[in-house]
Design a protein around this nucleic acid. Structure first.
Length: 262
DNA sequence: ATGGTGGCGATGCCA
């Protein structure tokens, strides 16, 4: 089995103790990190290397930053999208590792539908879709994991009325994500429906006691190519890690895959 | 209630 997780950690340096505890307990083989918020030279490599991980980085100061940790060698590392040019924000890194091609994705938040950042979110999805189309043509097991900053349906939102056409939930954003899915991806968590009728949330706002009230959204996703989907054994949101002290506002999503993945 | 909490970095910006 291969254990693969995605987690928006909201600063890898501020989160180091809880992330290391999580690594030891959850024992993922491959980790897709988002919002590391650190330049590559200042990334805390040693604690992760000591846990047995190889490391691929696309970092940035203060904002954004993505990384891949893997117990397997990391090959074919690619950072960013050609379409977004030099100096683009650090929001995408991919690698081939353990027989699967993976990417850590941190989609632009967009701020609000009437913000200039909303158009940048659309452009990011456009560039991601183009790259995903190329990767799917390889016919490999492919997993695009990360913080997509889109709740796909109202079942992924604790209060759909309050979030109606708001950022993360607006109709165009859902269409951008769906257009990516329509290339041939399966949303690993989409089939999970709780007794409440909701799907498991992955992000809860720090503000207003979001987690204790379960006022959350499902915006972190594992998107699986067909050959990755056929290997999927189980997947869960590890919300216990959202309950810790000094933790991220996102929970990890862990998928377990039968080998060989490809 | 147009707030609120948190990270970064030293102030507002971003989420």
């Amino acid at each position: 089995m291969i254990r693969l997780a995605t987690w928006n950690v909201n600063s890898v340096r501020a989160r180091l103790p809880v992330v290391l505890e999580w690594l030891r307990e959850a024992r993922p083989d491959i980790v897709l990190l988002q919002e590391t918020k650190v330049q590559d030279a200042a990334f805390p490599r040693d604690p992760f290397a000591d846990e047995g991980y190889n490391i691929a980085l696309f970092g940035q100061k203060t904002y954004n930053g993505v990384a891949i940790l893997s117990k397997f060698p990391l090959d074919d590392v690619v950072c960013g999208f050609p379409a977004l040019g030099e100096g683009q924000e650090a929001r995408y890194i991919e690698a081939f590792t353990g027989g699967v091609r993976v990417a850590s994705v941190y989609v632009t938040n967009g701020q609000a539908p009437d913000s200039p950042k909303y158009e940048r979110k659309r452009q990011f999805f456009e560039a991601l879709r183009a790259r995903a189309q190329t990767l799917l043509s390889y016919g490999e097991a492919l997993i695009l994991g990360g913080d997509y900053n889109v709740a796909p349906t109202d079942a992924d939102v604790y209060d759909p009325q309050a979030w109606h056409e708001k950022i993360l939930c607006s109709t165009p954003e859902r269409a951008w994500l769906q257009s990516l899915m329509d290339l041939g991806f399966t949303d690993a968590l989409a089939s999970q429906v709780l007794p409440s009728g909701k799907r498991p949330f992955t992000w809860w706002d720090y503000r207003g006691n979001g987690f204790p009230r379960n006022a959350g959204l499902r915006i972190d996703h594992l998107l699986l190519s067909e050959s990755a989907r056929t290997c999927l054994h189980e997947v869960e949101v590890q919300s216990v890690w959202r309950a810790q002290e000094k933790t991220s506002d996102h929970a990890p999503v862990m998928g377990v895959f039968r080998r060989p993945v490809s």
